[in-house]
Amino acid sequence: MTPRDASDDSRWSDLDRPPLNAAALRRGLVRVGSLWSEVEVVQRTGSTNSDLVARAEAGEAAEGAVFVAEEQTAARGRLDRQWTAPPRSGLFFSVLLRPEEVPVARWGWIPLLTGVAVATGLSRAAGVDTALKWPNDVLVTVGGEERKAGGILAERAGQGGVVVGVGVNVTLKAEELPVPQAGSLALAGAVSTDRDTLLRGVLRALEDWYGRWRSAGGDPAACGLQETYAAGCATLGRTVRAELPGDRSLIGEAVAVDGDGRLVIATKEGVQEPVGAGDIVHLRPA
């Protein structure tokens, strides 16, 4: 689908959900010395990740490009799950990173780093408590229950690039949630649902953490990322079930996140097994 500009005639069709102010976002984010090189906002597209990957591979996007859509019609989450939300009800954006000075073996930390930045930025800007479910689901509390309000998907792009997509439910009402386990910042009692402020807060936190990680050569311990991630990870200390590739499952206590960003699960047999890919189900409340 061809992206449409955000200034089309439906711009003010929902006054409870005003459009993002692209010009103000550019003024606040694109500056000398900033990671962010451009900010583009479109009304509608299939997937911001797919669009930005295509641009990166065609050599049409520089590091720090930010591509935002008010609505996505073919958004994807981890494990090829669909991500749906009404127009202007959340933040749906992708960024292009080119961590050329970081060994590729450490690039697996990029989605976890983004999770820390998103959780930090939203906590500050929206005034809600956030946590991370391994590897990078953003959790909020709604009615005393953990709910997923955001997710992250990283994809390799050509010419040494990584495109990281972020989706966050901001103003979704209970009847608009795609699944009962989902949540939104509004349902979690956010003091602010101004999407311009939220997006700026997330991107500034992402710039900060990406800069620290890159300066440390991608070493998650040296830059404090590994410790910060563990402190905000709601999965650690829980009994979990890991649904692994090959129709295998593993049940045990999530005891650590290792230097490669893998979740270490201790089984009742006394074995500690690192999990690098799979679906994690929390079985015991914190």
Rank of each mutant, 00 (worst) to 15 (best):
T73V: 13
F67I: 02
A61V: 10
E71H: 15
A65N: 02
A56D: 08
G77A: 07
G59D: 12
G46D: 14
G33I: 10
D51Y: 02
L52R: 02
L35K: 03
R55C: 03
S50C: 01
L52E: 05
Q72R: 02
T73D: 03
E38Y: 00
V41M: 04
E38S: 12
D51C: 07
V53H: 05
V66G: 01
A58L: 15
V53L: 04
A58T: 09
V30C: 13
A54S: 12
R31F: 00
V66T: 05
G77P: 05
Q72T: 08
T45P: 00
V42T: 10
T73L: 14
L29I: 11
S37I: 01
V42L: 07
E63L: 06
R44T: 15
V30Q: 05
A65C: 11
A65I: 04
A65P: 00
A65S: 14
L52I: 01
V41I: 04
D51N: 09
S47A: 12
S34V: 05
A61W: 11
A65F: 06
G46V: 12
A62T: 09
V53G: 03
N49D: 10
E71N: 07
N49R: 13
V39H: 07
A69N: 08
E71L: 15
V32D: 11
V68P: 04
E70V: 07
E71S: 14
W36C: 10
R55Q: 13
E40F: 04
R55W: 12
S50P: 00
A58M: 11
A61K: 09
R31I: 04
R55G: 00
G33S: 08
E57Q: 13
S47I: 12
E63N: 06
G33T: 09
A62M: 09
E57K: 09
E57G: 15
V30S: 03
T45E: 14
E60P: 01
V32W: 00
E38R: 14
A58K: 12
Q43E: 15
A75M: 01
V32A: 15
G77E: 09
L29M: 10
E57V: 03
S50L: 10
A61R: 09
V41R: 02
A74P: 04
L52S: 02
A65Q: 04
G59W: 12
D51K: 08
E57P: 00
G64V: 09
N49H: 11
A62Q: 14
E63D: 12
W36H: 10
V41P: 01
A61E: 10
F67R: 04
Q72E: 11
G77V: 13
L35S: 02
Q72M: 11
V66S: 04
E63I: 05
